[in-house]
Computed example of a mutant assay.
Amino acid sequence: MNKKVQVQDLGLKDYKETWDYQEQLFKSILDTKIKNRREAAGLETDNHFLFVEHPHVYTLGKSGDISNLLVDEAQLKAKHAKFYKVNRGGDITYHGPGQVVGYPILDLDNFFTDIHKYLRFLEEVIIRTLAEYDLIAERSKGETGVWLDVGTPFARKICAMGVRASRWVTMHGFALNVNADLGYFDLMIPCGIKGKAVTSLNVELGLEKVDETEVKQKLIKHFSELFEADVVNI
């Protein structure tokens, strides 16, 4: 099993360009697995972890409801935002500047073959990272992602998640609000869940700006511990 995970920080990059790059890496891993199965080639499969920040964009998952986007095309254009239907799970999600977005493209045969466990581990990476900022983050029953003050009238989501997996290869991932412009969340029903607020790490800490590089370092530290991964920056 190859536990090495290649970490790339793509910086600010268009959503569709990043999606295409994810698909390229995803297909490469699948092709290797198919070759191994057909030819007993015994080739190692790669694992990747992409960090990226997107210009304003709304994405709708396979099971999502377009009515959860509350603006039309003209209003999106006025907000300098794009919209895409995508092949991940989940409903509608916003990405934009000030978010730390992580896309693990892993062959789970190198780690464990359990999608439920994979999602819980991704959530745990976020929970442990936020704990380093003295925030008690939690899961909310029946709602993927990471929340604060679950079970109270003040429950608010700080990290959205949605993944795709085929033959135990993953893509898409999480979006953690670090210095996000929360006004953009008013243009949708986040993840299709009505009446739930959204927050950002800088708001919770009462800071104008949180060091995003530091947040990424903490995320990778907890990811490598939980997945017992050998992380390599490329």
Results as ranks from 00 to 15, higher is better:
L25M: 15
T170C: 01
Y94C: 11
I126V: 13
E132L: 01
N87C: 03
K77C: 06
I115E: 00
G96C: 01
I220Q: 14
P190W: 02
G145V: 02
K216E: 04
L219R: 00
E44Y: 00
N68W: 06
R38F: 11
F185A: 12
V86P: 01
I34W: 14
A137M: 07
Q24P: 06
G98H: 00
K62A: 15
D230M: 00
A180K: 09
L182C: 03
L30S: 10
M171L: 09
D181V: 01
Y103V: 08
I158D: 05
D9P: 10
N179R: 06
E132C: 08
D211T: 07
A197Y: 05
G142V: 04
L148A: 05
Y84G: 10
W147M: 06
K62D: 06
I220R: 14
K141I: 00
Y133F: 09
F227L: 03
Y133H: 05
E132Q: 12
I92V: 06
A175P: 02
K117D: 05
L201T: 06
V215M: 11
S200Q: 07
G145L: 03
L219K: 08
A131F: 03
I136F: 15
G195E: 05
R38S: 11
S166V: 12
S140F: 06
V203G: 09
K218F: 02
Y133Q: 13
L76M: 10
L226A: 12
K194Y: 09
T144W: 03
I127F: 06
V86G: 06
Y184F: 01
G61S: 11
L187F: 02
K85D: 11
C191K: 04
L50N: 00
E228M: 02
V210G: 04
N36Q: 14
V232C: 07
M188Q: 04
L76P: 00
L76S: 03
V215C: 09
K141C: 03
A74S: 09
G145I: 03
Y103N: 13
Y103D: 12
Y133S: 10
G173V: 10
H95T: 00
L122K: 05
V232K: 11
A229L: 05
T18R: 10
E124W: 00
A131C: 02
L10R: 12
N177D: 02
D109G: 00
I34L: 12
L226I: 13
H54W: 06
V198P: 08
V146C: 08
I34V: 15
K62Q: 13
I136T: 14
K4T: 11
T152C: 09
L201Y: 09
K27H: 15
F49K: 01
M161K: 08
E208Q: 12
V5H: 12
F174C: 12
F121M: 15
C191Y: 09
